[in-house]
């Protein structure tokens, strides 16, 4: 087995083992931590498709994370107050069903990614980073100033949304949902990287000119990747909101975009399990260092600096060595 495959398997097992241990030891807090890791990793898997595979450094993925969150918040708040979202021209009611919420989150963030991507991808480099950041901030201030759904205070949802056949309020069952979705996203991400689309997208990242010369438009590849990326991060947002039973404009803030990016950089850009490793380390540091000092972000910053300076491949890159060839 290749070394990276082994590390990936260990990470997956570890993420599964912690909540199982916590279940036996009756420490539900750690189950929740593992759930957060799975959800953050999912958001990172989404962003990694844009950054790692497409070379599109989006600093606005909070937009999709937030939209996913508000898809849950809006639907569930209408469901809990028994008020329809819309009565004319046709009736749309709120929903307490996770699958309905997920589909809504994926569609909403996909559409947003289509619009944001279509405009932002006309630029490149620093301008792309700035424009995506600007779109994220636009949504942030929009939600702050929109009183119908809590404005600055956000929205609290009193009951966790349901999934047919499961008790979602049971921490381990909710963890199972997020773990399975993360697994599916990872499988999809692997397939994508090896597919014709992945080959072309990856080549466009390395040489736009090359891709044009063989008759493929790089813009369309990138826009498609951006939309897929946004959809996955949006789904993570919906799960995050469900975990907290709370949504607020913070989900849209640039700090959120930054954090998702930190997961990838810590774990290893363009590595399949990079976001998983990164999110796990992030949460671990938050717990350990956060207990020592309120200013634990200083240490996170130092660590990030070291990774960028000395270990460009992140955790996975350092442990697994050079990237495996796709052959």
């Amino acid at each position: 087995m290749k070394r990276e495959t082994m590390i990936n398997a260990l990470l997956a097992l570890g993420l599964l083992a912690v909540p199982l241990w916590a279940l036996i030891a009756d420490e539900p807090f750690y189950i929740t931590l593992a759930t957060r890791v799975a959800i953050f990793a999912l958001a990172g898997v989404g962003l990694n498709i844009a950054i790692g595979l497409g070379g599109l450094v989006s600093f606005g993925h909070a937009a999709f994370f937030g939209l996913g969150g508000y898809a849950m918040g809006v639907l569930a708040s209408h469901a809990q107050s028994y008020t329809p979202m819309m009565e004319w021209p046709f009736l749309i009611e709120g929903s307490n069903s996770m699958p309905v919420i997920w589909i809504t989150a994926v569609i909403a963030s996909g559409l947003a990614a289509l619009v944001i991507g279509a405009l932002s991808l006309r630029t490149a480099g620093v301008y792309f980073i700035m424009i995506t950041l600007a779109f994220g901030q636009m949504l942030y201030y929009f939600t702050i100033s929109w009183p119908a759904y809590g404005g600055e205070d956000g929205l609290s949802i009193y009951i966790r949304n349901g999934f047919p056949g499961l008790n979602t309020l049971d921490p381990i069952q909710f963890f199972a949902i997020t773990f399975v979705i993360l697994g599916l996203a990872l499988v999809f991400s692997t397939l994508l990287a090896k597919s014709p689309f992945g080959l072309a997208l990856n080549a466009a990242r390395q040489s736009s000119e090359r891709v044009e010369t063989i008759g493929i438009t790089p813009y369309r590849l990138r826009l498609t990747a951006f939309v897929i990326s946004g959809m996955i991060t949006g789904l993570a947002g919906a799960l995050f909101a469900d975990l907290n039973r709370f949504v607020s404009p913070t989900m849209f803030s640039w700090q959120t975009s930054g954090e998702i990016m930190v997961f990838i950089i810590l774990g290893g850009t363009a590595r399949l399990f990079g976001p998983v490793a990164g999110a796990a380390l992030f949460i671990a540091l938050e717990q350990v260092l956060g207990g020592l000092s309120d200013y634990w972000h200083i240490y996170l910053g130092l660590l990030l600096l070291c990774v960028v300076l000395f270990a460009r491949g992140g955790i996975i890159g350092t442990l697994a060595g050079e990237e495996a060839r796709h052959d």
């Binding site: 397939l191 994508l192 090896k194 597919s195 014709p196 689309f197 992945g198 080959l199 072309a200 080549a203 090359r210 891709v211 063989i214 008759g215 493929i216 590849l221 498609t224 796709h326």
Partner: peptide
Amino acid sequence: QNALLGALGAQGKPFRFFHPV
């Protein structure tokens, strides 16, 4: 992979996401 990319361009169907190239 570089040669496959050319073949993919000639075939004109890069938007396939699941089958390994």
